[in-house]
Design a protein around this nucleic acid. Structure first.
Lengths: 202, 202
DNA sequence: ACCTGAACACCGTTCAAGT
DNA sequence: ACCTGAACACCGTTCAAGT
């Protein structure tokens, strides 16, 4: 039976994710984590040899879950405004969950102090977000119209969309960071609304 | 002579600020800091009894310097667009300085893991930024026009400006966070430009 | 007034030892 | 296969002792 073992590993990951979302990667303690799970800290190392291994595993799963959710949004609606509402909802729900942050958002702040394998996974999360936002923004532009454009113009358009996508991701992460500091979910909502009013969000 | 003593204290603060901007408050080590300054770690405690005292002192001075710089911008020009260019330049220059972050931006991510006295100073930085941005945005609106408005309308306008200011602060912090992750100053510039294009920045 | 060595309880990590 | 106690070099902090 590998069931109990798998359960322990899952329990470690669940507890660790919450701890990192609250206090950052540097704020995560193996001894404290072990106490929460009900094992000794040396046992954590059996499942995750180093703290970097654990951090990378957390970020990888977090990104996988995000991809599933994001793709689900695209399948359920054709409205870019609805897509973006679903998008910002992920970041909102982290705050609702005891004022926590996006796992990769908080780790991004620790970027230069992160083990390389964790940093690589955090960077992948950014890439996945931007890629999905590009898809959403591209749908706004009728495909036929884009194809009718001259090639140079189409490339300039693609670059503008890429930058717009990155700007949305950055702005939403920033909104979460500031709202978390205020400890007020209304600040997040108002900031997102201000982005919409300005025209940054569709 | 308190000169040598003052020098040591200043050297500690300078070195510590750079370390925190690069690796966060949790990533700051008294022993490493002491080595950099050329004293023993116990000596750091003479000038700053706890790590929280040092962190709070760093954030306080950082905010004071920011206020001086921001007010200088207002004195030198009447153009809100120029004010905002000067504003984003502070965050840009941190990135130029070895891919560092705004001291309070990186500490904001560690918010819930910060000693209370540090957290208080970090929150003050946000307040100072928003207050200044409100001033800049309010200047766009001719004062006479604002006074001519009905009181209820003027209040709604003030609230909209407050939220706009918070949105700008959040977006700029987010731009820095994401650009820092990419290790590319061009990402910061393009994101700020995308904010401007969208109409978030004047 | 300023600095230090030594001790304390913490941390991630390793490893021989247990089941 | 999974867990553990004990040891290691780190960490912030304290304090008696030095100048």
């Amino acid at each position: 039976m590998t069931e109990a073992a798998t359960d322990t590993k899952q329990m470690i990951m669940s507890a660790a994710r919450l701890m990192v979302q609250a206090r950052g990667f540097n704020g995560l303690s193996f001894r404290e984590l072990a106490k929460e799970v009900g094992v000794k800290s040396a046992s954590i190392h059996y499942h995750f040899p180093t703290k970097g291994d654990l951090g990378a595993a957390l970020a990888r799963r977090y990104t996988e879950d995000a991809v599933l959710y994001f793709d689900g949004l695209l399948a359920v609606s054709d409205d870019p405004a609805a897509h973006i509402r679903g998008y910002t909802e992920v970041f909102r729900s982290a705050l609702v969950n005891n004022n926590r942050m996006c796992l990769c958002g908080i780790m991004a702040a620790e970027h230069d102090d992160l083990p390389v394998e964790v940093r690589a996974e955090v960077d992948k999360f950014t890439k996945v977000n931007v890629k999905w936002l590009v898809k959403v923004l591209s749908r706004q532009q009728p495909a036929a119209q884009a194809q009718a454009q001259a090639q140079a113009q189409a490339q300039a358009q693609a670059q503008a969309i890429e930058r717009h996508a990155l700007a949305i991701f950055a702005a939403v992460e920033g909104a979460q960071l500031v709202a978390r500091g205020r400890g007020d979910i209304a600040v997040f909502d108002q900031t997102i609304e201000a982005y919409r009013t300005a025209g940054l969000l569709p």
